[in-house]
Design a protein around this nucleic acid. Sequence first.
DNA 1: TATTGTTATACTCTATAACTATA
DNA 2: TATAGTTATAGAGTATAACAATA
Lengths: 159, 159
Amino acid sequence: MAKPTRARLPTSEPLKMAPELEELIGYNLKRAYVVVQKDYRAALGDGGLSPRTFAALSLAVAYPNLTQSNLARMLGIERSGLVAIIDELERDGLLKRTTVPGDRRVQALVPLEAGIAAHRATLAKVKAHEDKLLEDLSDVEKETLIFLLRKIRRHETES
Amino acid sequence: MAKPTRARLPTSEPLKMAPELEELIGYNLKRAYVVVQKDYRAALGDGGLSPRTFAALSLAVAYPNLTQSNLARMLGIERSGLVAIIDELERDGLLKRTTVPGDRRVQALVPLEAGIAAHRATLAKVKAHEDKLLEDLSDVEKETLIFLLRKIRRHETES
DNA sequence: TATTGTTATACTCTATAACTATA
DNA sequence: TATAGTTATAGAGTATAACAATA
């Protein structure tokens, strides 16, 4: 049976980390992601688009008449999970589902003027939040980080 | 009203990305995190410890007699959320809650032999999964990535 | 008054499976 | 048979608020 070998860490003591955990890419990725995500929410507030809704809108604006299935693929999520996101965007008047002549199964996504404006405005806020949060990273460091993250993203499942 | 300006993206066409999305750190962080997290689960299987449970065990092993409140702080989660994680670890015989003489409020976490062994075995599996998944990153690139992620992590809320 | 562990509760994000209407 | 959109459902993961015991 394992015996306690050290005294309990008092609350006042500065927080230590598990050394082997700190060397793992996955752990650092998760923790860093939480930092950025929390700051995003704080910066955009309650009325703002959530990260995933903003991502969906960005792609819908960049590729008008996109299919929901294609958008889900681009986002790396299931078709079923996209429904609520599109519901929200349509409810807010940012885009609309339209039927496509020639294939009555699909619902093409058409960005509306309000959606294009919301996208532009939100993008500016997101950029401002990242610039502020990451101001202690140089431009080269930010480029390097994105380059390395994209290298990991090459393993995204293509399904 | 916005008019469709391009033809619908056919399923066969290679997936495009929204350029401005691809330049955001947060978006790339999220997508890369999903890649690593999915590969972790695939590598460790159904019986394996989840990332958060492994992280909790790692810290409990590194700091015997740790308090639940301190552990929650280290993990960056709420005390309440840690309860289920410790329940799981205790149920699996990997650690035990023990009362501390001098403060009967706290439940010190004592790693058991099985817990130390499970930690060692899981760490080996996690390292193997990361080495395999990230084999296209050089050692310098991996070090750089961890360095940059830690720079972001400096903004972790100290609560 | 403040803190520790706990419970209850709810919300976000995501996945799986099954359905319908089309193709 | 296969695909697009949808619904129902469930499971992580996390947060907030409150509580009892203790400091």
